[in-house]
Design a protein around this nucleic acid. Structure first.
Lengths: 290, 290
DNA sequence: GCATATATCTGACTTTAGTCAGATATCGTT
DNA sequence: AACGATATCTGACTAAAGTCAGATATATGC
């Protein structure tokens, strides 16, 4: 009945009117939208005036006036940057914090109302995650982090949970050859997470060590971000890190139950090889020469 | 990592900036946003000035001026309503149609760009459908239509396809007791479809005939609209139609593979009864006294 | 036929957003 | 100390959106 273009446009229409309502809700406190946006940007931790200007896409004259009006309301204070007196740093006063909290309460209230109107929620939330990830794809940044960091931990937890769901025999981390975190930290290896607007969307580990090859481990992409090419980006970044570390040969093991992963490897230059370890879970082995 | 409220707010943030971009694209033809919105409303078939004003939420003075400016550009013409000379009817001129088509081309272009940036698409499109349906839930209208109409046909096609997927033994319409369309048209019965912004989201048939009971048939809800209470609304409307037609007893057959449907029936006052027909597909039978 | 309601239009106004040129202060470099 | 580059601010302006009080014409109910 509807072609993809019409479906995208239908979504746009639905969302445009919903967003219009969100905008007007920011007008509920007797302050124009522009000033409210600046106040909220500061409340969310942006302090550098130039950064806020870029983020909100404002002209410097307009920005200056909005700051002045918030200062007149005694909601913010500005001071010079400590190392560069040309730059200004904005901070909420205690009245500003109260006002910011009131805006936060409005936003939370709206989100709750939305959820209570659509109580069957998990499918809807998953769809919202997927779309937020897709729209913010350009904003999904890959970072090298310590595999023992919070973000990494979260990703690994989700990864193990998914393996447990997808393997007929379940999955127990202890039985698998859990790579020592030190092998996934420079200079031996690397661990990369993809973050979008505070939400970890995927990870991959590069496990070095004393051998003639390094291994790719723990490639995971959040369900909310599948189909957006994130797996490919993670793998590319891991390979890049491997080259950077002077690694010439990469290997990985996987399971045929993880069909998407197998496809990705085959499509990006990996070749199947015989088993090279005695881990009980994998049944498929690949390598790639850099 | 994220609670539901934060997930909704993340979605709102992502979508707000995307919608901002859509808005500015409507400025690409040297016309203010307000005038462009009115022109597009008229192009999409809204003719009554008051209706457009309500739809766009405009003040009558502003609306009047926007119409005037479009008239000055010779993009629209207004005439009095034929039965009520106070009301005005707006129509595109041929120049107006060209201009409207140019806006349509921009919208289509944007939708295509979006799709090509997210090529793995079907999961994303399904998520967009779900969200558009959820946001437009209040706008989902149930209509009584002829079961041979296009909308009904589309719904039935999707319904059969889904049965074929979900039944182990497949599904062949010809083997099932396909109710004669005439039994689902007044005064014998009824056929109801749910439409949201042009997309059929569900259907249900009420099949009358010469017997002591009428049957509920072909209850279907589009995947994009599940969990929004549409099944319940369809059933309520069908029951209402049945009462209207003086029907005192309803029966239906279903299959235990369709778990959601069974739940819905049980929760809305239906009681399980023994088999009352020899259709090969159903294995569960219900009735409800009105 | 008259009073009242309804739909639209006009004029006068305000607020908000945005633009742009140039002023001011500070920084980094030589 | 002098230079250009950078960050912010100020003043003067425009465009767009929105508000509100009537004016005008038509419809409806009694």
């Amino acid at each position: 009945m509807l072609d993809p273009v019409s479906r995208v446009r239908r979504f746009n229409r639905a969302v445009t009117s919903a967003v219009g309502a969100l905008d007007t809700s920011f007008l509920g406190r007797g302050r124009p939208l522009g000033a409210a946006r600046v106040l909220n940007a500061i409340g969310h931790g942006r302090a550098d005036v130039g950064e806020i200007r870029d983020y909100l896409g404002l002209d410097s004259g307009l920005m200056s006036r909005l700051l002045r009006s918030l200062e007149d309301e005694e909601l913010i204070e500005t001071t010079a940057h400590e190392n560069d007196a040309r730059r200004r740093i904005a901070k909420l006063t205690s009245a500003g914090k109260r006002e910011f909290n009131a805006y936060e309460a409005i936003s939370n209230r709206q989100a709750k109302d939305f959820l209570s109107h659509h109580s069957q929620g998990e499918a809807l939330l998953a769809a919202m995650d997927l779309i937020a990830s897709a729209l913010g794809r350009d904003a999904t940044a890959l970072h090298e982090v310590d595999p023992r960091s919070d973000e990494a931990h979260y990703c690994l937890g989700e990864y193990y949970a998914e393996l447990a769901r997808r393997f007929k025999q379940g999955f127990d981390v202890k039985l698998s050859r859990d790579p020592d975190a030190k092998d996934m930290v420079r200079p031996r290896g690397s661990f990369i997470v993809a973050m979008s607007d505070g939400l970890p969307l995927g990870c991959v580990g590069l496990k070095g060590g004393g051998r003639e090859f390094a291994e790719i481990k723990r490639l995971w992409v959040a369900p909310a971000a599948r189909g957006l090419g994130l797996g490919r980006r993670l793998m590319d970044t891991a390979e890049h890190a491997a080259r950077d570390l002077g690694i010439a040969l990469l290997r990985l093991d996987t399971n045929s139950a993880l069909a998407e992963a197998g496809q990705l490897y085959r499509r990006s230059g990996w070749t199947e090889i015989p088993r090279f370890n005695d881990d009980p879970y994998p049944d498929l082995f690949f390598e790639k020469r850099l």
